[in-house]
Amino acid sequence: MIITRPKPFAEIQSALQGKEKIFLIGCGLCATLCQSGGQEQVIRMRDRLVQEEGKEITGLAVLEAVCHVLRSKKELRAHRAELSASEAILVMACGGGVQAVGKLLTTAPVVAALDSLFLGNIERFGQFEERCSLCGGDCILNKTGGICPLTACSKGLLNGPCGGMKDGRCELDRQRDCAWVLIYERLKATGGAEAAALTIRGPRDHSQGLRPRRLVVDRPGVEK
């Protein structure tokens, strides 16, 4: 899921300066699980904007998944009047969500309330860890014991630990395991260590992940 964190309130204050009538949008998917843009956080934001900033909240909606543009469009129809009376839309969702709303509502500025951080796994409630960088094709997990060094190694090295590894820990953070020591241990436990040791993995093809990326899936039975 997309991991998000609230922006400092001062930044939101500044972005909403001069805008008195605000509509709030939250997200029922990732931002709800991150406790950054679910029902509870949207209501808290409403109260804060009313009590501390004296804003008028025209309405609020926690959409099922803000980034689902088609569905969000339908869900926002029910709020047409409130939205047209608003001077700004504050979106408590990831950067994808903010831009989905921006595409749907073009009459008032859309303001992001969250910073988008990474694609994260939920390790335990409230603890998210990055395992995949969505690097854009050519996934090497099958060659590295199922652990992604582009993500887990802070230098993204493809051929083993750097000289900064110390007692199995990373040069950047001595609390964090060296990705290549983890890969080495995994391969030793599951087989394939020797083959991996003897293989030099070549340079990445960065032309595979050029931005912005797009994927169109052919639907079987549907004529193009």
Partner: peptide, 13 residues
């Protein structure tokens, strides 16, 4: 290096 073996891999490579 500790552990040494991954460092030896890299050395061979």
């Amino acid at each position: 290096a500790n552990p040494l073996e991954p460092q030896i891999w890299r050395f061979f490579q």
